[in-house]
């Protein structure tokens, strides 16, 4: 069996988990194996949707001990399920929870682990992964020597493809309490927007923005085209009051949106490393020699303070918006 750990939010499977499930289905077909989907929480309402993404069996573990995320509780559940069902591959989406729990479960299983992978295949009966290293400056093909193989899939890379699976259900017992660490409280950002790592459209600003307050024009453009705002390290470190959670680059977030609009970003190696996985790149910069143009599908040499508001205006006029 190929087992995919899935996350629910507001009774729906999170998009990165549907992507991991779809890739799991493809691998299960290639290997002639069953696909299992594993859910955990106070309630697993919504888990049945996994059948739409190819799950043959849907495992649910419900209970008060699983109401808050705990790395040891979730790792125990994952590892025990892998062992009980004889799964050879364990996948999760490379989300905050997935990246926290999957390596712990892998160590419990004595399994090799590949994080944030962008391609998977089954070679000689074992998982093989391709993953970006040096923040995308290179790609490493990873092979496993362990009997069980664990990987997390990078959000926004694997297409979520609907393919009906049998969707049989099996209820698993929730692990008993007394965990080593537990999440006590979630402090949400006011915006409620998706995270940069999962965003489909990113409008990013660099040193050319001149001041943190000027990021307002990027917010307006992002709102008009359904995107979120990021920043280069130069902008975050400039003392403009931008949080580091906005930073895109090797020492910030590594992103893979469909569209990345770089405004006033010259394109330092460490920034390019973080966004070169974008499908389409637009660069807006005064300096025609800026390295970012080498990467851009579309380049605009001009003053971003004129171009960005024009883009917002035109996008609103055309009624453009992306999912």
């Amino acid at each position: 069996m190929i087992l995919v750990f899935c996350e629910l939010k507001d009774g729906q499977i999170r998009k990165p988990s549907t992507e991991a499930l779809s890739e799991g289905r493809r691998l299960a077909d290639a290997a002639g194996k069953q696909l299992g989907a594993l859910f955990a929480g106070a309630s697993c309402a919504g888990a049945a949707e996994a059948a739409k993404f190819g799950a043959d069996v849907i495992f649910t573990a419900e209970g008060p001990t699983l109401a808050s995320y705990s790395s040891d509780a979730f790792a125990t559940l994952m590892a025990d399920t892998v062992k009980a069902k004889g799964a050879t591959v364990l996948l999760a989406a490379a989300t905050a929870v997935g990246k926290d729990v999957a390596p712990r479960a892998a160590a419990r299983l004595g399994a090799g682990y590949a994080s944030d992978v962008t391609a998977l295949s089954i070679v000689d009966g074992k998982l093989q992964a391709v993953r970006p290293v040096y923040a995308g400056k290179a790609f490493a093909t990873t092979t496993f020597s362990s009997a069980i193989q664990v990987a997390t899939t990078r959000p926004n890379v694997f297409p979520a493809a609907e393919k009906a699976g049998a969707g049989a259900t099996e209820v698993l017992p929730a692990p008993a309490g007394d965990f080593k660490s537990v999440v006590k409280e979630i402090l949400a950002k006011a915006s409620g927007k998706v995270d940069l790592s999962e965003a489909n459209v990113i409008v990013s600003g660099g040193r050319g923005m001149k001041d943190g307050a000027n990021f307002k024009i990027l917010e307006e453009l992002a709102d008009a085209i359904g995107g979120v705002v990021g920043a280069s390290r130069a902008a975050v470190d400039a003392g403009w009051g931008l949080p580091h959670s906005m930073q895109v680059g090797q020492t910030g977030k590594v992103v893979s949106p469909t569209l990345y609009i770089a405004c006033g970003i010259s394109g330092a190696i460490q920034h390019i490393a973080g966004m070169s996985g974008s499908k389409f790149v637009v660069a807006i910069n005064k300096d025609p020699e800026a390295p970012i143009f080498k990467l851009a599908n579309y380049g605009i040499v001009g003053d971003l303070f004129e171009v960005v508001p024009e883009l917002t205006k035109a996008a609103k006029a055309l009624g453009i918006g992306s999912n």
Partner: peptide
């Protein structure tokens, strides 16, 4: 548990306009 069997540079991006 896992080994790198190949390391490759990302494909060149097509020239933009």
């Amino acid at each position: 548990g896992a080994q790198v069997s190949a390391l490759a540079l990302p494909p060149e991006r097509p020239a933009g306009r």
